[in-house]
């Protein structure tokens, strides 16, 4: 019983924060709300017996990526969006792609909801088939990661290297060595 309550709580925080993320004018606020959302998400992960992922989420996402976003926002002194007409108009009344996008998002939710409701096998509770022990064992996780997925692991490291170099090159001021 309490599980479902925590679930709804965490899920509620998550969804509301996300909605607020896209609803803020100031990107700084958006970033902060997203951090909150990530925290809730981490809670959900814990509930799914995935402690490693939860911790990784906090460290990587909330800790690193969001901080990066914050830095960039502050660096660019990101101007606020043109508020006046934007605030007043309902998403469905905004011109062009915005309207289309809003509509499509709604349609997507409906489609996914429909699909999920129809698929009966998904009704089963999450933990019904196996116990948590296997899933939450970080040691097991490590073994599988470095054993079966070693190649992907190494490739990812190269990917990060490339991304780092790319970011440095792209963000350079012109004329600097």
């Amino acid at each position: 019983m309490p599980e479902i309550v925590t679930f709804y709580l965490l899920a509620g925080i998550l969804v509301v924060s996300s909605a607020l993320v896209i609803g803020q004018r100031n990107p700084m606020y958006s970033v902060l709300f997203l951090i909150v959302a990530f925290a809730a998400l981490a809670g959900l992960y814990i509930q799914l017996d995935a402690p490693f992922v939860a911790v990784a989420q906090i460290i990587i996402y909330a800790g690193a990526i969001m901080v990066l976003f914050l830095f960039v926002v502050m660096l660019l002194n990101a101007p606020q969006e043109d508020a006046a007409e934007w605030d007043r108009t309902h998403p469905l009344r905004r011109p062009g792609i915005a309207r289309v996008g809003a509509v499509l998002a709604g349609v997507l939710i409906l489609q996914l909801a429909y699909a999920l409701v129809r698929a009966n096998e998904l009704q089963a509770p999450v933990g019904s088939q196996t116990g948590p022990a296997i899933v939450s064992n970080v040691r097991e996780l490590g073994k599988v990661l470095f054993d079966r997925h070693a190649f992907a692991f190494e490739a990812t490291s190269i990917l990060i290297l490339v991304a780092m170099v790319g970011a440095v090159v792209l963000a350079r001021r012109e004329g600097e060595s």
Partner: peptide
Amino acid sequence: RTYAGSLFMGVVVVLG
């Protein structure tokens, strides 16, 4: 955004 929009439109259509 328009390009992303058309991408998304495609996703919705296929899913539908």
